[in-house]
Amino acid sequence: MRFDGSPGYVATDDLKLAVNAAIALGRPLLIKGEPGTGKTRLAEEVAAGLGLPLLEWHIKSTTRAQQGLYEYDAVSRLRDSQLGDPRVQDIANYIVPGTLWRAFTSETPVVLLIDEIDKADIEFPNDLLRELDRMEFQVYETRTLVRARHRPLVFITSNNEKELPDAFLRRCFFHYIRFPDRDQMEAIVAVHFPGLKQALLREALETFFAIREVPGLRKKPTTSELLDWLKLLLAEDIPPEALRADDRRTLIPPLHGALLKNEQDVHLFERLAFMSRRSPARDG
């Protein structure tokens, strides 16, 4: 199995290498990076590229590690026992497998995505050490061992909200998705909008990187926001000229709501745009 990028996803060489190393050794791959750089998309694309099913486990602040393994539904069993249901004799009927269990027992190798692991409690990664390392765990209620038939390809994404424990990190490969530069961004846009007019693309990227350069923005626009914005521009059929910075009619780019996500940033950008519009006038 090798991952060589996919038509719908632009992967850099180091990213492909990290993915292939993780595949070759059966280790989890930890992906960090700015929001919107395609961390979650990567798992989807690898699954699609390798033709494997994708299992997703989205982590919330209340998620516990046990929930990924299995849950024992004691309440249903108690209820059934009151009603005299014969199912109640076998405790296994009340063990509800979690995402990891399903990944371990799948007939084919799977891609397992543990999304936003940093959202969970600070001890969460430690509780999964053995499971991800040995790819097995014990079901205490039935005294059985669930062992992976095929080591799943584990992708873990993190937004750096919490630091992850060292013991956990030691077991992973790590890749940090850098923010794409201009050329990569053009390639990414070309993948999503084939046949986009060059003039519009140039102006849009110009504006996009200019906005990212603005000092003091609370939230810089990201790749996914650029793609949304382009989609809007195409839908509204905005001409490339309207995006140009020296266009005197508008202060800020049309449909900026896709790029700037809070009012302070919009104000800041308006102020800066206003000032930059005035200064050439003064010079002239």
């Binding site: 290498l17 990290a18 190393a21 791959l29 490969f173 790590f174």
Partner: peptide, 18 residues
């Protein structure tokens, strides 16, 4: 280059250490 990227993915777990 390949060795560099592989070594980094395997050994460094924090982008601030890059």
């Amino acid at each position: 280059d390949g060795f560099y990227h592989l070594a980094r993915a395997a050994l460094v777990k924090d982008e601030t250490h890059f």
